[in-house]
């Protein structure tokens, strides 16, 4: 497997460097594969952001009902490492821009209500 180590992370604080075992393949490699739907992509976010992104009482922000353009702007900033983050840069860089847009479509279509108060379908 192609191993690409990015060693150019210049961060301001501490010993901020990637681990030896880190692997990153740019998402463009998968651009010609059939599309992964916004829902399949979005359901991967739920362990942190809640079922359908609808957890409103935890530190990680709710995604349900989030404005589409805001979502895209944030994810692209994460992906392009505009600034260091706690974890989202690493998460976002796995996705193509089109995938980010599909996730934005998915989350912006969900009501901004806690999962408990939503209907199932």
């Amino acid at each position: 497997m192609k191993r690409i180590l990015l060693l150019n992370l210049l961060l301001t604080i501490g010993l901020n460097a990637w681990a030896e075992s880190d692997i990153f393949i740019p998402p463009e490699r998968y651009a010609k594969d059939p599309a992964v739907s916004g829902r399949v992509l979005g359901d991967n976010c739920s362990a942190c952001h809640g079922t359908r992104g609808a957890v409103f009482d935890e530190s990680m922000p709710p995604l349900a009902g989030m404005d589409r353009d805001t979502f895209i702007k944030l994810m692209k900033d994460f992906k392009n490492e505009v600034r260091p983050t706690i974890v989202m840069n690493d998460v976002a860089k796995a996705y193509t821009d089109e995938e980010i847009e599909r996730m934005a479509d998915y989350f912006s279509s969900i009501p901004a209500l806690p999962w408990k108060k939503q209907t199932l379908h």
């Binding site: 961060l11 681990a19 075992s21 880190d22 692997i23 490699r29 998968y30 690493d90 860089k93």
Partner: peptide, 9 residues
């Protein structure tokens, strides 16, 4: 595709 650990910081 990707495995990244948070840095030792």
């Amino acid at each position: 595709q990707e495995t990244i650990q948070s840095p030792v910081n």
